[in-house]
Design a protein around this nucleic acid. Structure first.
Lengths: 320, 320
DNA sequence: ATGAAAGCGCTAACAG
DNA sequence: CTGTTAGCGCTTTCAT
């Protein structure tokens, strides 16, 4: 009835009745029931955002960017966390889809067959984020981690390092880290350089972890002159270890991480790193989604947006 | 019809038809519509979790704990972020309530009148978390930040420090930091000690910020022999600054933060700190909510759960 | 063990 | 400008 119109500022309503309704609503403490509304109107204005983890910092960051971008839109993000587990991703995706969201933003390009099928069948815009090395279901916005790995390898070689070690999370869990590693080794191989030592760990990343891993590896392979870490936190741990040991960084030992975690700016030395464009990814993903929704499901030209990460040399990479 | 029964394993259904339905659902890629389901059954199985920020680390952590605790329940958490803004809290709360969640977990005890009214009128369990210094709408689980501040003050005085400075986020935004500060100064006052210098900053906290603030304050008030920080990150920045300057920590200058951020374990020295029981808070809040829901809105005895933070002396507080 | 019918609280088309 | 009438896709209750 009229009430509905007032509450949504739709259709023509006289100022008098409008006032009356608004007041009544206020005094009654009326909160509309979106469930009923959504069912009736077939519009839910929810965006499912599916990410692997909340403790990685990277993801809250893109999430913030998405929220911010959606701020003065009808759309509202709803997050689901997969813990890097494909089965859980499937579950979360199913749950989310059963709320009939207007769109999906999901991290990564690798999903189980079932997940891909769901995404494809949902009939809504799907934006896969963070990574573009692969075939998206619909749209993708992210960086090429393979290229990022290559770029870092090139920079390291250019500085004359040649006994290179790698440390990172266990690969099967984190495709983007894996791709960086692959790009990295590939580029080294082109110059005839092989990784001298490598270590894959499980569990959270923190300074302490980086310390341990680095100490172990350097004890094992004392000839290493460069260490490439799959993330800044363990890299920073390695850096602190090296400084404690009185190792000349980067003359004797160079270091680099990944992500450009701004939280770490303030360490005695600035770790060389590469930013993953997390804010831009969130913004661009949200914009793309909005654009897709606007065009009313018309000409769905699958779009891939590649962002370009920038390399920060910091104080741990430049030898000359 | 029967299909509904099969999909929810309710009522008696013959194995034959059950199979048939299940298979049909699978081949059709059928995803149930929860909106319709929720509307019909008047049950939504969503828990609204309202927190100030995702970039503070603390909140993703309690969120994880909540999610984990709710894992094998029907309930699913849905998060809303307020950016520490009361108006935004109101908005988010309203939005959330319009989805008719089964319960609410919300950070803090201070809310606008409108927000409190909504919470009270919602007719669902409300768990206010993080803080217990105040009057909860319904239940609360958290620590006493005032007591935490006092406890830290006591520990500092016991070590013979007497020229004490404080650094923290601008107060009006963060009630828990304010309460810690109040408890801190209160306890110092009891021993006739006054804060010598203090500084309230705005914006994110990171190592770099802590460095700057500390350098500034020590330049301004060189007599200080202890610095209490409202969080570990700026505290760690201060610590790094002090080490760079060759200051004897904690003989000449003691330091302490708050939160026990495990990410920092691995710094050259361990910062004295106090944990905020974030994991326990999340777990306990979820359990309390479940209990409340079980008892079917029966005897609603408002419950307050106070957790006890533990003080870690680290390497920056113990002088003797 | 299965089908039929009546809503859940709203929105969207129509009438007036 | 305002009221009326159908549903939205499920769950629930009541018959069969």
């Amino acid at each position: 009835m009229t009430v509905s119109r007032v509450l949504r500022n739709r259709g023509d309503v006289s100022a008098a009745t409008r006032e009356k309704v608004l007041e009544a609503a206020k005094t009654l403490g009326y909160v509309p029931n979106k469930i009923a509304g959504a069912l009736a109107s077939q519009r839910v204005n929810l965006v499912a955002v599916i990410i692997p983890s909340l403790s990685n910092m990277v993801f809250p960051e893109v999430l913030s960017a998405i929220s911010h971008e959606l701020e003065d839109t009808e759309l509202q993000p709803v997050v689901g966390v997969t813990d890097y587990l494909p089965e859980k991703e499937e579950k979360v995706l199913f749950e989310m889809l059963s709320w009939r969201p207007s769109g999906i933003i999901i991290a990564g390009l690798e999903h189980s067959d079932a997940s891909r099928a769901m995404l494809a069948a949902a009939g809504i815009p799907v934006i896969e984020i963070m990574d573009i090395d692969g075939t998206p279901v619909d749209c993708a916005v992210g960086i090429s981690h393979r290229r990022a790995g290559r770029q870092m390898a090139k920079a390291i070689l250019k500085q004359g390092f040649e006994a290179i070690g790698f440390m990172g999370t266990k690969m099967p869990l984190d495709h983007r880290a894996r791709k960086r590693f692959e790009g990295f080794t590939e580029m080294l191989a082109k110059s005839g350089v092989e990784i001298l030592d490598q270590e894959f760990y499980e569990g959270g990343s923190a300074l302490g972890k980086g310390r341990e891993l680095t100490a172990d590896m350097m004890a094992r392979s004392p000839d290493l002159d460069f260490l490439y870490y799959s993330n800044d936190l363990i890299g920073a741990g390695g850096l602190l270890w090296a400084l404690d040991e009185g190792i000349d960084v980067p003359k004797r030992l160079g270091l680099a991480g990944f992500n450009n975690v701004e939280l770490l700016q303030g360490l005695p030395r600035q770790l060389a790193t590469m930013d993953a464009c997390r804010r831009e990814i969130g913004e661009k993903a949200a914009q793309l989604l909005l654009a897709r929704l606007d065009e009313g499901g018309g000409t769905l030209g699958s779009e891939v947006v590649e962002l370009t990460p920038t390399l920060s040399m910091g104080d741990t990479l430049k030898r000359y």
